[in-house]
């Protein structure tokens, strides 16, 4: 896990559910086949209603037609990010598209767990709502050491909640690597 995550932000609203993150008709693809799994990147966030995609006026595609990765590597959300189904395909799809971190006010618990235990992305919580403070396309930088987010486009800086207990799991790589480090499994 690197100490600095830097990239362009993609902004969404509240209650972004896992059907929006990856619609159920796409859950049939292999999660291991190197070619097929790229389809998850192609369809990441494809269920978000167009008028909410990238807010505030919407209409911004997360992944361009014909591509399977996104130009945005940090997703900014509001409350209850990742609610709904338990599909691990959701954080997997975001990762496939190139997302390294999500910052949201708080998460639905299964999405949060899947993100950490599968080691797909860093789910940071924000004490302050950032949806209105960051615009899609802004260049932002997350400092893991300082638990802060700097909006390089506007110069504004925001505190992030320390990762706490999940940090060693993310640092190990995933829950298996962590459990081995801790001698919980062989």
């Amino acid at each position: 896990m690197q100490e600095i995550v830097r990239g362009r932000a993609f902004v969404l609203g509240d209650d972004v559910d896992t059907d929006q993150i990856v619609p159920a008709c796409h859950l049939v693809y292999s999660l291991t086949d190197p070619t097929e799994k790229r389809l998850y990147g192609k369809y990441a966030l494809s269920g978000v209603p167009m008028d909410q995609s990238g807010l505030p006026q919407g209409g911004i595609p997360f992944v361009h037609e014909g591509s399977d990765t996104s130009e945005y590597s940090i997703v900014v959300g509001g409350k209850n990010f990742g609610c709904g189904s338990s599909r691990e395909h959701a954080p997997f799809a975001l990762r496939q598209a190139g997302v390294e971190a999500v910052v949201a006010e708080f998460y639905a618990r299964i999405f949060f767990r899947n993100s950490v235990n599968g080691g797909y992305l860093i789910p940071y919580e924000t004490p302050q709502r950032l949806v209105e403070r960051i615009k899609t396309g802004d260049e932002v930088e997350i400092s893991m050491a300082e638990n802060s987010l700097l909006n390089l486009t506007t110069g504004e800086s925001f505190a992030l909640r320390p990762l706490g207990d999940i940090r060693p799991i993310l640092e190990a790589g995933d829950v298996f690597a962590y459990a081995r480090q801790q001698n919980m499994i062989k």
Binding site: S86, I110, R113, N114, G118, V175
Partner: peptide
């Protein structure tokens, strides 16, 4: 995620992802 249904039988039942389930 709807594994919580089975709490109707007085048990602890909850939904998990693939990684957790593999473990």
């Amino acid at each position: 995620s709807h594994t919580c249904t089975h709490g109707a039988f007085g048990e602890f039942a909850t939904g998990i992802g693939n990684t957790d389930a593999g473990l």
